[in-house]
Design a protein around this nucleic acid. Structure first.
Length: 904
RNA sequence: GGGCGUGUAGCUCAGUUGGUUAGAGCAUCUCGUUUACACCGAGAGGGUCCGCGGUUCGAAUCCGUGCACGCCCACCA
């Protein structure tokens, strides 16, 4: 405000002049302005949510909590800006914005970082140690085994490291100008979030929507944890069909199965073929005998067997894949577990109930060759064994009937894993989803998806869902499952009767806290209890982000005001996880949707159109770019991309944004330096300009309403550059200056009209740009409009609309503006053709156009010739020229003015 | 195997309900210093709107079909 200066009031009206251009810096210092405005916005609370205002006036954002231990990535700038642009638009519509920021800090990435940094391992069986201190591990310390710490200690250690990472993110968000309410901050591992997640579990337990079960579950042998369907992905992998001969018990018949997993032969519990397959029909109901292990297994028909695939007959193992699980359940087959949790072959004994064999001695001999090997090693060895004739079940030569036939096939992996998933029977907690697929699909219909085609991703995933949600993870840094199990007299847990924590006690850690009705001394003792050592899937917590913000379960009044939220911004890669689980949770808890709108951002792509890789992303960190081009320029880049479309990274666009910021700065400086008086906007050209401006504001608003901020930006930018600075401003420049030159009478009124419409144009354009360019628009707003309008921040000023334009009488014919633009361009072209500067005076020229064109141009012709510095002009009718077309003839340009001697 | 998206100037992208001669920025070339701005302005060149077929007075746009690229989903024998 220090550079603001007003001239003394004139006689005809209140004087208007906002700045003395000599006192405004020559260039816009973006880094300085960014720091200054960020501090100002925090201090004045422009982005603060007002809990007193009504729900209808409130716009609730379900902000994505970034993974705190992840690195800052240019993609963050992209998607978070797109959300912020929409939020700023809603704020200018007068909405009371609830825009929180969370940090997703529980889960594997943090766990691994902490383990490496401090060289510690979490062990739920280690007692809690108050005041435990750790420091960054030295090379020497790293050579020793990792220090074991209790889970609460581990969580404490994580906090320290996370806070540093979060500081980096927070600094980026502030620099970027995200209009977040920093009073509404949470960490997914904090007490409130752990409590909310555990309350969610309690509620689902009471509703009968969670259960624990010992069942085959997808298991990662490296992380040694269960994995949910959403975290599994198919990867094409090389494999091979192995053709192996089985005998049929009580006959001389045999058949050959094809398998890609011969190492699971010892786990074979059945054989199946399609019921209509004539080759194998005769065997249904008989027993097959496996080679090497001589185990009798049932042969049964199944529609799921494909006669075209392999040999049409296949072995069922516990468990080679999801179909094996299905057959195992449907046919009540035996369980023969040969792969352990660490991915190695377990010790088993043939000749026992679990592992029948017609020749236990031989079977155990073969199996001894496999025991302890990992799956890959075991496969190699068993193929060698199968190539020997001694193992045959039929006595007719080697069971391996031909060389392995290489194929490529999809194999399921944990998304962050390196070895294929195994299906292992383990005890896990699940949420029932399979019973509710139709309801979940219906909820998906209730949400408005932007862009709409993203809804298909949700629908595809939900329709194809094949498993209940596995909630438990055998990890440490997460939210503990708030459950204990009574121990019977033999010290065995009674899983059927778990002890669920009481709501008032949450958050709890059952490995430390004592269940209701027990004493600490009972832990691990017969007749006592044991705590569930597992934690929740991190999505179990993050899928509650709307409820975390609304304080569901703790503050019903706040919950009613903030839930369901209005918008969920997120990336399309996590529709199947975050969006899906959030919808699922809202349904399971309250039979509602979690938010009304989902706005789905695209990705940043490398020049080869692949998702920008981690390694490349690290070299492309946002801060140097923000430093080089400014935050507004980065936001311009992000807001230039349509919502949902993947975009190739193009640094040039940052440069265009920077150029726009500079232009706005200069245009603002010029407009606010004009002196004038408060007369109404009366001149034809000015009224036509305002009419165009009103159209732009209306169109911009329509586009924003459907999340089409990119289109709004483009329209506003084109208008600003083409119509405002390049044309309108040039056309009225001379007239506007007349006031300063001491104009009187109608000259004064016309000059004031120009100044007033320039100011209106600037005010409207600044506001249309404000969601995308918060810094430069706020800067210029502060020079004059802040005080004049009574809105200290442009970000709380109203979106341009009727109130801005009502006082200006619309022209009879707004096309006069376009004609002025065209005539101005025609003279420019004449000057360019003559290779004289645009500022050169024109002694005379003749303007040719159609009669109607000239007639409609009439009221604005004076501004056109003034802007062109035309000393005299004539017009002539040329009927052959189409409407709006101008031709310049007989132009005579004044001689180039003599250069002033330097220093004069 | 099913689905979604994309394909427009050298590059990155707009293009509304079908409507004159298809647009912008960058890049290229020419010209110009004009007290808001050289961090600028004026002008020019540059297109088989992926191919083919259809509807229509008229198609970048609608329909059909094929191709290329990207993504999502799918029971791994």
């Amino acid at each position: 405000m220090s550079d603001q200066q007003k001239t003394a009031p004139g006689p005809a009206g209140e004087a208007v002049r906002s700045i003395d251009p000599a006192q405004v810096s020559k260039h816009f210092d973006a880094p300085e302005a960014e720091a200054r405005w960020d501090a100002e916005w925090q201090a004045s609370g422009v982005y603060r949510w007002d809990p007193a205002r009504a729900r209808e006036e409130t716009y609730v954002v379900d902000t994505p909590p970034p993974t705190a231990s992840g690195s800052l990535h240019i993609g963050h700038v992209f998607s978070y800006t797109q959300a912020d642009v929409m939020v700023r638009f809603k704020r200018m519509l007068g909405m009371n914005i609830f825009y929180p920021m969370g940090w997703d800090d529980n889960g594997l990435p943090t766990e691994r970082r902490v383990q490496n940094y401090y060289h510690v391992r979490c062990d739920p069986n280690t007692p809690y140690e108050a005041g435990l201190e750790v420091e960054e591990a030295t090379a020497k310390v790293r050579k020793k085994p990792a220090r074991l710490v209790s889970r609460p200690n581990f969580i404490e250690i994580c906090y320290g490291l996370i806070n540093e990472d979060e500081d980096h993110f927070r600094a980026l968000w502030r620099r970027l100008g995200l209009s977040v309410d920093w009073d509404q901050e949470y960490q997914t591992i904090d007490d409130h979030c752990r409590r909310t997640a555990q309350l969610s579990f309690l509620d689902l337990w009471q509703k009968g929507r969670v259960y624990s079960s010992e069942a085959p579950t997808m298991w990662d042998v490296d992380f040694q944890t269960a994995v949910a369907q959403a975290e599994a992905e198919d990867r094409p992998m090389p494999g091979a069909y192995h053709h192996i001969e089985f005998a049929v018990e009580g006959s001389d018949d045999s058949f050959v199965i094809a398998t890609t997993r011969p190492e699971l032969l010892a786990a074979c519990v059945g054989v199946t073929a399609h019921p209509d397959d004539d080759r194998y029909k005769k065997f249904f109901g008989s027993q097959a005998i496996t080679p090497l292990f001589k185990a009798p297994v049932p042969i049964f028909p199944s529609e799921l067997a494909d006669p075209e695939k392999g040999t049409g007959v296949l072995m069922v193992c516990t468990f080679g894949d999801a179909t094996d699980v299905q057959w195992w359940r449907e046919q009540s087959l035996a369980l023969r577990q040969v792969v352990g949790r660490n991915g190695r072959m377990l010790p088993v004994e043939f000749g026992t109930d679990g592992f029948p064999s017609h020749d236990p001695a031989q079977a155990n001999g073969y199996y001894a060759e496999l025991e302890g090997k990992n799956v890959k090693q075991a496969q190699k060895r068993i193929v060698e064994l199968l190539a020997e004739p001694e193992g045959s079940a039929t006595g007719g030569g080697p069971p391996l009937r031909s060389d392995p036939e290489p194929i490529e096939h999809p194999v399921k992996f944990y998304e962050r894993g390196e070895r294929p998933l195994e299906h292992l029977p383990t005890r896990q907690w699940f949420a029932r989803l399979m019973d509710h697929k139709d309801a979940l699909l219906a909820k998906g219909e209730e949400v408005d998806w932007y862009p709409p085609f993203m809804h298909a991703r949700f629908r595809d995933w939900t329709e194809n869902l094949s498993l209940d949600w596995c909630l438990s993870r055998q990890r440490y840094f997460g939210v503990p499952i708030p459950v204990w199990y009574p121990l019977d007299a033999a010290g065995e847990p009674d899983y059927e009767n778990p002890i669920i924590a009481e709501a008032s006690a949450l958050p709890v850690d059952p490995t430390v806290d004592i269940p209701p009705g027990h004493e600490a001394s009972g832990r691990g003792e017969p007749g006592g209890f044991v705590g569930d050592p597992d934690v929740f899937d991190t999505w179990f917590t993050s899928s509650l982000s709307p409820q975390i913000s609304s304080h569901w379960g703790d503050d019903p009044a706040r919950h009613a005001k903030l839930f369901p939220a209005d918008v969920r911004p997120q990336g399309h890669d996590i529709i199947r996880t975050w969006a899906f689980y959030t919808i699922a949770k809202a349904f399971l808890h309250e039979d509602t949707i979690p938010w009304k709108n989902a706005m789905i951002s695209g990705w940043i792509l490398d020049p080869d159109r692949k998702k920008m890789s981690k390694s490349k992303g690290k070299t492309m960190t946002p801060l140097p770019l923000l430093e080089k081009y400014s935050a507004d320029a980065g936001r311009y880049w992000a807001a230039s991309a349509r919502l949902g479309s993947d975009t190739v990274f193009d640094e040039k666009v940052w440069g265009i944004g920077k150029r726009l910021v500079t232009k706005i700065f200069n245009a603002g400086k010029f407009v606010l330096a004009q002196t004038g008086e408060t007369h109404s906007i009366s001149v034809e050209l000015d009224r036509a300009f305002v009419a165009k401006l009103a159209e732009l504001a209306a169109s911009s608003r329509r586009e924003f309403e459907v999340y089409n901020y990119a289109h709004s930006l483009q329209e506003t930018e084109t208008f600003f550059w083409t119509h405002f600075t390049d044309t309108y401003l040039e056309l009225v420049k001379a007239r506007a200056r007349k006031h300063a030159d001491g104009a009187t009478g109608s000259d004064l009124v016309e000059s004031a009209s120009a100044v007033a419409s320039l100011r209106l144009g600037l005010s409207v354009l600044l506001r249309l740009f404000a969601p995308v360019l918060p810094y430069i628009t706020e800067e210029i707003w502060s020079w004059s409009f802040a005080e004049e309008t009574g809105h200290p921040s442009i970000h709380q000023a109203p979106w341009p609309g009727q109130a801005d334009f009502a006082a200006v009488a619309p022209p009879e014919d707004a096309s006069s503006f376009d004609l002025a633009v065209a005539a101005h361009a025609a003279i420019n072209k004449a000057k360019a053709d003559a290779e004289v500067s645009m500022g050169r005076e024109v002694e005379k020229l003749t303007l040719l156009a159609g009669a109607e064109t000239l007639e409609r141009l009439g009221p604005v012709l004076g501004d056109v010739v003034d802007a062109a510095r035309c000393l005299s002009h004539t017009t002539e009718v040329r009927e052959e020229l189409e409407m709006g077309v101008f031709v310049i003839e007989d132009a005579v340009f004044a001689p180039k003015p003599e250069k002033k001697p330097s220093g004069a």
